[in-house]
Design a binder for these strands. Sequence first.
DNA 1: TTGTATGCGTTATCAG
DNA 2: CTGATAACGCATACAA
Lengths: 349, 349
Amino acid sequence: MKFEAVTIKDIARALGLSTSTVSRALRDSYEISPETKKLVLEYAEKINYHPNPIALSLKERRSRSIGVIVAEIANSFFSQAIDGIESIAYQNGYNVIISQSRESSEREGINLNYLTSRSIDGLIVSVSAETTDFSGFRELFDRGMPIVFFDRIVSEINTHKVTVDSYRGSYDATMHLSKNGYKRIAAVAGSKYLSISRDRMAGYTSALTEMGIVVDPSLMLHCPHGGLIRQEVEEAIDQLLSLPEQPDAIIALSDKLTTGCLRVLKSRNISVPEKMGLIGFSNSDLTELIDPPLSIIKQPAFEMGEISTSLLLQMIESKRPPTDFETKSLAPQLIVRESSRERAMIDGG
Amino acid sequence: MKFEAVTIKDIARALGLSTSTVSRALRDSYEISPETKKLVLEYAEKINYHPNPIALSLKERRSRSIGVIVAEIANSFFSQAIDGIESIAYQNGYNVIISQSRESSEREGINLNYLTSRSIDGLIVSVSAETTDFSGFRELFDRGMPIVFFDRIVSEINTHKVTVDSYRGSYDATMHLSKNGYKRIAAVAGSKYLSISRDRMAGYTSALTEMGIVVDPSLMLHCPHGGLIRQEVEEAIDQLLSLPEQPDAIIALSDKLTTGCLRVLKSRNISVPEKMGLIGFSNSDLTELIDPPLSIIKQPAFEMGEISTSLLLQMIESKRPPTDFETKSLAPQLIVRESSRERAMIDGG
DNA sequence: TTGTATGCGTTATCAG
DNA sequence: CTGATAACGCATACAA
């Protein structure tokens, strides 16, 4: 037996009424007699009637569902963001359809087509690390599809954007390392194409400059796939280790890279932070349990998801296109967990 | 400007054809002349035509989307499972609509109504820790909705189920602790209502019995919300610590509980594994980075998601109801990471 | 107060 | 080869 839903017709037939009467009774229209209403409502309840949302969508030209595209779901930052997205969507009666690009712009494009041809009412996107051509998003947006970018935003498209203050995050983290006595700080970032990579690198170089440290390009590395490919991180670390003047600390500029760096350093038997200082962007709830504890820059992922969704729903439900779009830049949280080495330095200095 | 999709009508009007001809041309029907086809196809391409899936769904009585209900998305086990679900769904042209119960059976019920009244073609569920009444699922299933349970399965409903061999996982882990010299091993499980909690407890008691250790009920604790509420875990640990005969090791029977126990032990300044042995179910990719490294029981979450989805799609796409349902029990992976204490014990004994 | 007819976008059936 | 029409489930303008 296939899943067969009860329709308004079934009720109408059973009660000897017309479908419109039933429809109106169900919607509690004032023009239906109380008796008829009662009759219909009770019968509907009894046979477990539920309106078919697809028919409704067709009629109302809206699906009450929003699409989400992220690089990967199984990532603490993104899963926390999706958690926030789902929360707001749920509160407003919207469904969330998720898909992942896996850092491939091809797959991102397929998902984009896929989702939009599915009649979603709006889209929340964190673009893939690989994407340089945003015409797909642009066209869609120009044709009237509400889009909100978060985290990895597309500056070329004028719509709502939600991001963290990447510059500040890495600036603060670099400063923290510097103030703790680290002299030669390397930075490992994700794809050069991502604005967040550039911003984070900028925060890093600014901090160095401010501390009177000369910026050394050989200490600034990029992983095109943001560490999704393990080998990338290994190569980056090995490159740093093979330098004539090795760095004494690393700042990892994304969640995936932080974990990756820690793992590679460990596999190379380089103790953190004794032989190599480390700080990084991370949203994993386990960093505090690492021994010695790791200082991190934590992004308000959940809130980012919530805000993105609020803005999107606002766009969807407003009659006229908004006159001005916002770019919300949330504050990242520098969580300092002092290790023995750092304590020693502070005590000593 | 609202998002207005191009329809078959627009093409028909522009080309002076009927909608049926256009429809047939687009579907490459054999009864359309090559010229007309070419004309239609080129024009459709030009104006960026995409069929409206909602209209299609209405007609075909299927939405090509599946619903997923889990306790929480921002959890490494579930996010990995969702990753697997999305992978298979994507390959088969299905969308994934996610929602979370947050371990509340009320919210689970709302999501259930919500999703099914949304015309999903099937449902993948890991039930909430709180749920004892499965009539909602039962009725839905009996009315023909394909459902696959994974992880937290509902034994009362005869459908496909995908789980890990919980018994074996905790049996092996308990054995591991026992063989490493731990004598008084406590177990912290999730909700008593969940079959996985019971199975895991069973594996634990079997192992103890086999090692000739008397099972002590005061060492077997439950957290009704599976550790989603932090306080639960604190109370459990404190209860263990206040015992006249304290345990010397703990086995944590879920992802959330493993992290929770580690955190609470740390906050109570109890070093792991020197003062308290610990092993637990975990899917976090950071456990290997903890120092000293933590031994874990890892569930094949991604594969569970993949298999659940395959089974679901099979149910959805088969004409007749399957005659027999499978309960796939996957092998958990015991990942042993020897700590110094364990090494010492092995060397010494 | 209730019923009839129409349309949302698409395809299948039947005519031509 | 192509066109008109009905149907999918629902809501609503219009009739009665």
